[in-house]
């Protein structure tokens, strides 16, 4: 085939533009029987916090039309176990890790970045800011440009060298302004999107299915929303790399994200249906780019913005 599929996460070159999505691949180990982890752009690990978290009570999941709702609540072992167990395993396997971090306060994010600085196997940080800010009565960082910017500035301060991506929530009125605030704070790139808040009610019990009442919607159902977000962010910040995600299940869908402005994509919920999906999607994307006459992936990034005479009215 011979197409050049290399891309970058900030300043770091990666051989493939297809990555896993945080929370949909744990720390990679369980996917090892199904695909070649080293062939992925990176394994994006489950958002890790300072302390161990139990996550929320069950039921934590409900399947919905072409999607699912989850309220896992960031179950995880905490940064210490992550550094002693998960990350070394990925490094020993030769896989690249984009480490997702989450916290309830600006200082927690900074401390996580400090603890992770220089860790073997880590090639980039993804900062999950779709978390409630305990100091602001639980308002989600990603819904407040000033708070989002403060988190990114703190992480940047804690690790000046590593590529940092801010992971945005689609549940905002103007996602481009949040993206700009994150870039101003020090983010090298933007990951978009996280899940959309949703609800399912059981008509037998007349109660919400999830014990947490609401949950995050993911999967093909959210793809058009995700693609619109990537489009808007690329229009507002054409120089900022975007890790696009939301409902991608095949190469053609990944291509939509690339031509909308994503320089790489994450595959989340599709892994539950097909654990080999990230590797397959990488193959399919390469074949499609060849068929469309591209010599390298980088030529296709944002192509849809250039290929048509699009007015701002049509774009936003």
């Amino acid at each position: 085939m011979g197409i050049d599929m290399a891309t970058r996460l900030g300043g770091t070159q990666i051989p493939s533009p297809v990555l896993t999505a945080s929370g949909c691949a744990a720390a990679g180990r369980e996917l090892d029987p199904f695909l070649d982890l080293t062939a992925l752009g990176a394994v994006v690990t489950k958002s890790v916090q300072l302390r161990a978290r139990s996550g929320r009570p069950t039921p934590r999941m409900a399947e919905t039309p072409s999607g699912m709702l989850n309220s896992i609540g960031l179950q995880g072992p905490g940064i210490e176990a992550f550094l002693s167990d998960d990350l070394p395993w990925l490094a020993s396997r030769g896989a690249r890790a984009m480490v997702s971090i989450a916290g309830g306060a600006v200082e927690e994010y900074a401390e996580l970045a400090t603890r992770l600085r220089g860790a073997r196997g880590m090639i980039a940080l993804e900062v999950n800011i779709s978390c409630p800010n305990v100091e602001s009565r639980g308002e989600v960082f990603a819904c407040d440009p000033a708070a989002a910017s403060a988190v990114l500035a703190a992480v940047r301060g804690a690790d000046p060298g590593v590529p940092i991506y801010a992971k945005l929530s689609p549940d905002v009125t103007d996602i481009a302004s949040v993206a700009r605030a994150c870039a101003d704070g020090g983010a090298d790139g933007i990951s978009a999107i996280n899940t959309l808040l949703g609800l399912v009610i059981d008509t037998e019990t007349l109660r919400p299915v999830l014990s947490a009442v609401t949950g995050g919607l993911s999967g093909p159902a959210i793809r058009p929303v995700a693609l619109r977000c990537v489009w808007q962010i690329h229009r507002a910040l054409p120089e900022t790399p975007i890790l696009g995600m939301g409902g991608i299940t095949n190469g053609a869908e990944a291509l939509q994200f690339v031509v909308a402005g994503a320089s790489a994509v994450s595959v989340g919920t599709a892994v539950f249906g097909d654990p080999s999906a990230p590797e397959r999607i990488g193959r399919e994307l390469a074949e499609l780019l060849v068929r469309k006459g591209f010599a390298r992936l980088s030529d296709a990034i944002g192509f849809a913005h250039r290929s048509a005479e699009l007015t701002d009215a049509a774009g936003t």
């Binding site: 996917l31 999941m61 896992i72 892994v271 539950f272």
Partner: peptide, 14 residues
């Protein structure tokens, strides 16, 4: 228990 992935990556089935 209800499962989303069945292979240990999603934390649904705890």
């Amino acid at each position: 228990e209800a499962m989303a992935c069945g292979i240990g990556v999603c934390m649904t089935c705890v």
